[in-house]
Design a protein around this nucleic acid. Structure first.
Lengths: 183, 183
DNA sequence: TTATTCATGTAATTTGTTACATGATTCT
DNA sequence: AGAATCATGTAACAAATTACATGAATAA
């Protein structure tokens, strides 16, 4: 996955590892925050398999290793782009908490939900900052990606806010216990 | 994470590895589809660290290893439940495709989006089947978890359908190219 | 002068998957 | 008789993280 993120970035133009990281966090942070410890080994791996090649240079007295994509790398990337998607899997920590929330007081549960809403607000804010920024390289599809992030975070914020209201609304009832329903 | 999923399951009642897997896929499949290769080693690990203990028995001529949570395990689980959430991270393959979609013809992009919508419809259907089923152990919070899955998949289906309409609407324009904006 | 940003990397660990391997029971 | 489900596990591999490690340039 990371390899394709690297190849994709290099289809835009040649970049150093550091710049690739920058691009990720300035535009796609919400779906891929890459750590140094995975990026640099991945670059090495891709170079070894001939998908990218590097030149080392010194710019403003700073050592840099700038990578460009090779024709083979471009082909591999284009092939991947068209391939069927892997099965969609999604692991979402707060849902696990929610699933087992009967072990929790309602207050504690609300704390966790509030905390998550705050996380989401922060993430949304950082995307808004990116959206308000210079938005380099942003074509229609890249803008759609950003738009997705904004919409998505807002959706989750609303969903969890709504859940809280509903749980609060049934506060007098045994909220976390089994409630009979017509089945 | 998996360890907590196991502990959480065992707060409901004692279960074998197989039953834990069943519980996951019958109620929380959409956020945690656990493979044998991770579940059984995890059970071993938890037992070695004293969080759970097992008894082996033969039921209907079938060998079983039934696990129950220990008081220490319960405490570890409850502590975890209340702990701050880890930073929310989300990697979503189709967004990476979308981000680099300028390397793709519009037709190919639509194929990918359609394929993803189909994935989501299938996942939603499987959740609907679960929701229509006997819904064992389903307390309010567990129902909310299921509800989340249904709402979430529908949201994504709508979002991507909408994206397609929008892209189709601008088909005469250079859809995948950089479109100037007021910045 | 001190913190931040730029810049690259390694080592140990974590967490999980896929494929392999086995075997009994029950449903059709 | 054969397929599906029940039931448990190992071994090899994959992908990524965290912590460690270094060091120059620039902005406060």
């Amino acid at each position: 996955m990371l390899d394709y993120l690297i190849l994709g970035s290099l289809t835009i133009h040649e970049m150093s590892g550091y710049e690739i990281k920058k691009l990720m966090s300035n535009s796609t942070a919400f779906f891929s925050n890459v750590s140094d410890g995975s990026l640099y080994p991945a670059l090495k791996r891709c170079e070894e398999s001939g998908l990218i090649r590097s030149k080392e240079l010194v710019e403003n007295g700073r050592y840099k290793k700038v990578y460009e994509i090779t024709p083979e790398g471009r082909q591999v990337f284009l092939d991947w782009l068209e391939q069927p998607l892997k099965p969609f899997k999604f692991r979402y920590e707060i849902l696990i908490r929610l699933f087992f929330a009967r072990n929790l007081t309602q207050d504690k549960l609300f704390q966790i939900i509030d905390q998550h809403i705050q996380q989401l607000e922060d993430l949304k804010q950082s995307l808004e900052n990116i959206a308000a920024g210079p938005a380099k390289y942003a074509d229609t599809c890249q803008k759609a990606t950003l738009r997705f992030g904004l919409d998505f975070y807002q959706y989750l914020i609303d969903w969890f806010s709504n859940l809280e209201s509903q749980l609060k609304g049934s506060e007098n009832k045994p909220a976390l216990a089994n409630q009979p329903e017509n089945q």
